[in-house]
Nucleic acid binder design. Structure first.
Lengths: 354, 354
DNA sequence: CTGAAAGCGCTTACAG
DNA sequence: CTGAAAGCGCTTACAG
């Protein structure tokens, strides 16, 4: 049974409707025999209507297939309209997945994203972009790596006067809500996998040490070794920069060592992939001669040989938590003032590279 | 000099403003000494105001940093509000990049995305999702592979009564606007690279042959060979399915052949990466003993060794063209009725794998 | 518990 | 060329 929401057509003809067939709040109200306001109350504030009214309204909504118009909701300020996203303009599989996750969540929440790509990663330029985003209507800001790191220490961010959330940071930050995994524990857990195979000469490829997540992962590696009373050999700890090329150079160096490592723990999948390539070129049999682990569980992990044991971050869940926080902070500015830090569980994905 | 848009504060106090500091059309009008309508006219329909008025309005906009409120615009139907996107729930680097591109473009145009992930790729399920999206307020639909293929032949799509655009299809489609590259020419161009190196036993790994883009790429490969009068050897044409695993199996087979190929043209980067792995395992020196090419220029292309010569599709530009078409079709339904097919230029990226 | 009314910020047919 | 006014579809202080 289709209902044509006739009532709405009796109102004075509009200039130009967006979607002439759309079911409105008024149609629902007419059908339920209540005022528009009551319908709105039923939808938005549970418990402000009698059970009977509530039921009638709900069934009218159902019958008509009513979906509230988000633009109208936003116009009244009842819904978050626009979240600004500063997005690094770099070639990273992990960040691309993160962007896709954020887009997905934003669509789900009905929030409009305003995205600004940044190639220059300086503090000043980043701050300027943030200001621009706010000036253009962003009511809140969502940061992905490395922007939380860049903006994190700066007390000025509170001058932006919008709530800010950051995904995948290394730790809590003063004026920014953080949603992350425990990088240190994750790195420790994945290093454990290698130790469990009996490996003892375990090298590590870290990201840039000015990134605190790189440092946290390095610490996790150390934790794992120390617990098993395996000494940490500085000659096996190489500072790279998260790129495939840097992993290639480090792997060549390590595998050329007279007493080469029997395992390499990489700070991300890109570098781990580079290690695998180098090992193949050296004619090593994997994982027999060398165990390799990654971090992030990007698409790369299953497109190398052998597939990578790695750590998966719950990207989508992080984006959802960030969006949720932002919505809350927008309703209740008090909640934005206190610190917020959410630590989500990671997952070690076991594959054949260990 | 900062202007506080005082005039706006004199109006009766609102219930709860979305952003109390926002500059409105009225503030601009007051400052320029004209009506709100005139400001709107200046912004939207060029040429409906005198040069003088125009200049005054523009300078007021500039001085106040006025940015129109998109929610209000959408509410009047003057701006596209919401585009539905059906997105395959698969692990594909290329599709992830495409999603990111679409998100980026949507943000730029200020359109709200409504995304639905689909794991089941049947026609009926896809149609159902499309219907659901429209029912939930999507005014137009954007299709990414393989949904255009799935929905393409179906005359029923016009019953959805919204304009539909599809990105990265193999060819034009009856009731759907298409934005794509010339897959056949692209495959031909990349095969040329291999021929130019003097290779003559050139194998090809195609995607599933029910996908018309796979077929188009296969034809391009043939075109290139035929032009150089190199016979097409059916034993060297392997039908795969775009996955790394399928590429692995095909490569093992081909490289185990008594008269193995001296080049392999793959239908996408994933399969090309699999070929590289297999070649390494077989102890071949690359590209000396074997040339390999990919398709799509995903992140994978630079995270393998040697880096892949491949074809880049202008993902972002395709998304932008699709969004533009959709906006136009929404304003002028007539334009949606006739066929639309936009072919954008591709680019062959030369790297070390050939 | 329920509703009439004002308002969010914009656009547009219609007059002047 | 310019403007007053109605309207888009919703929410919310305020009354009853």
């Amino acid at each position: 049974m289709r209902c044509h929401a006739l009532s709405i057509r009796h109102r004075p003809m509009s200039r130009r409707r967006n979607d002439p067939g759309a079911v409105t709040l008024h149609a629902v109200a007419a059908r339920a025999g209540v005022s528009a306001m009551t319908v709105s109350n039923v939808i938005n504030r549970t418990g402000r209507a009698s059970a009977d009214t509530r039921a009638r309204v709900l069934s009218a909504i159902e019958a008509l297939g009513y979906v509230p118009n988000p633009s109208a909701r936003r116009l009244t300020g009842a819904q978050v309209a626009c979240v600004g996203l500063i997005c690094p303009d770099v070639d990273s599989v992990f960040l691309e997945r993160m962007l896709a996750g954020v887009a997905f969540v934003a669509a789900e929440c009905g929030v409009q994203l305003k995205i600004e790509a940044a190639a220059n990663l300086s503090h000043d330029k980043t701050y300027e972009i943030a200001q621009g985003l706010v000036g253009k209507g962003a009511q809140a800001l969502l940061l992905v790596p490395p922007f939380a790191e860049i903006l994190g220490g700066d007390p000025h961010v509170s001058r932006l006067e919008v709530p800010i959330a950051a995904i995948a940071t290394a730790h809590a930050l003063p004026h920014i809500a953080t949603i992350r995994i425990d990088n240190r524990s994750a790195a420790r857990a994945v290093t454990e996998r290698v130790l469990a195979q009996g490996r003892r000469r375990i090298a590590v490829l870290s990201g840039p040490l000015r990134h605190s997540d790189s440092v946290a992962r390095l610490e996790g590696y150390r934790d794992a070794l120390l617990e098993r009373e395996v000494p940490v050999d500085p000659a096996l700890c190489i500072a790279c920069d998260f790129t495939f090329a840097s992993g290639l150079a480090a792997a060549r160096h390590l595998l050329g060592l007279p007493d080469r490592p029997d395992a390499i723990v990489a700070g991300n999948d890109d570098m781990a992939a580079a290690v695998l390539w180098t090992a193949h070129q050296s004619g090593l049999a994997l994982p027999r001669d060398l165990s390799v682990t990654g971090f992030d569980d990007t698409a790369l992990a299953t497109r190398v040989w052998p597939p990578l044991t790695t750590v998966r971050q719950p990207v989508r869940a992080m984006a959802a938590a960030a969006m949720e926080y932002l919505a809350r902070a927008l309703r209740d500015p008090g909640c934005a003032r206190e610190g917020h830090d959410t630590v989500l569980p990671f997952e070690v994905i076991d594959r054949a590279s260990v």
